[in-house]
């Protein structure tokens, strides 16, 4: 039963290091000399869902991508500051990017399955990591698909092309692909923006189940979705972190006028 009077939420400024999944310190990102993120300091709580909200171009996706150094795929970028995951600054020169990206999984706005079978899609990462045992791969695929709430739907056609799946199924397949590598952190960049409302609810339900095993950061333009699924929410505006608080507070009693204007639809 949902306990109305016994809910405890840790305030963001009371988070200890143990409770922090990602610790961002003074992070700035520039693309082509244009500053996209401006000295961001934020502690993303462990095993919680954190939503990043803000207008288009405010730096949400850039912040999300900096958690697994995806920004570096753009050569004209410059990053300063630190991002600490598991007591390690991932912006050190010796960081193994492939290992980092398997620990910090990412799912994008549009499902992008490889033109292979469902099975191959899910175990793609494991195979790249060098896993060859059929039994291990089978188990991992079943586990990941099960966690992504897709197993029952595809168990009889694992070797069909992933492209034959519907949009919602493909998106869950993408989540399964990320989960197969047992990531500590899952980054979701508008994972439901291309899906119908019911499939969206399935994915949201899946996300709330996944927080038991992962720290989840989700970028969304859908304010109600952010309010529904997230435990904490951060509002960004033009590269600055304006407010970071637990979602109940941020969506009912925001501390900053800018946040209030954004969530009530007053930004022009």
């Amino acid at each position: 039963m949902f306990k109305l009077f016994e809910r405890e939420v840790i305030a963001v400024d009371e988070l200890s290091l143990n409770q922090t999944g990602i610790d961002v310190r003074e992070l700035s990102v520039e693309f082509d000399g244009k500053r996209v993120l401006n000295e961001i300091n934020i502690r993303i709580p462990k095993h919680k869902i954190t939503a990043l909200i803000g207008q288009s171009g405010c730096g949400k996706t850039t912040l999300l991508s900096s958690f697994n150094r995806m920004n570096e795929l753009n050569r004209r970028h410059k990053t300063t500051g630190e991002v600490w995951i598991d007591e390690r600054n991932i912006y050190n020169k010796r960081e193994n990017l492939a290992a980092l990206r398997s620990r910090v999984g990412m799912v994008f706005q549009r499902p992008n399955p490889f033109p292979m079978s469902i099975y191959e899609n899910v175990c793609f990462g494991l195979k790249i990591k060098g896993e060859t045992s059929r039994r291990v791969l089978d188990d991992a695929v079943e586990n990941a698909l099960d966690q992504a709430a897709l197993w029952e739907e595809v168990r009889d056609r694992l070797f069909d092309s992933a492209l034959t799946l519907s949009g919602g199924q493909q998106q869950r397949l993408m989540i399964a692909r990320a989960l197969a590598l047992s990531p500590e952190i899952l980054l979701l960049d508008e994972p439901t923006s291309a899906l119908d409302p019911l499939t969206t609810l399935h994915i949201e339900e899946l996300i709330s189940q996944l927080k038991k095993t992962c720290t989840i950061v989700i970028v969304t333009h859908n304010m109600q979705q952010a309010a529904r699924v997230s435990d904490y929410a951060a509002f960004l505006h033009q590269g600055d972190l304006i407010e970071f608080a637990d979602s109940d507070v941020l969506f009912t009693l925001p501390a900053k006028q800018q946040t209030e204007d954004y969530i009530t639809g007053r930004y022009g």
Partner: peptide, 8 residues
């Protein structure tokens, strides 16, 4: 409208 904050 799903009002939030002051609207709610």
């Amino acid at each position: 409208r799903n009002p939030a904050a002051s609207d709610l």
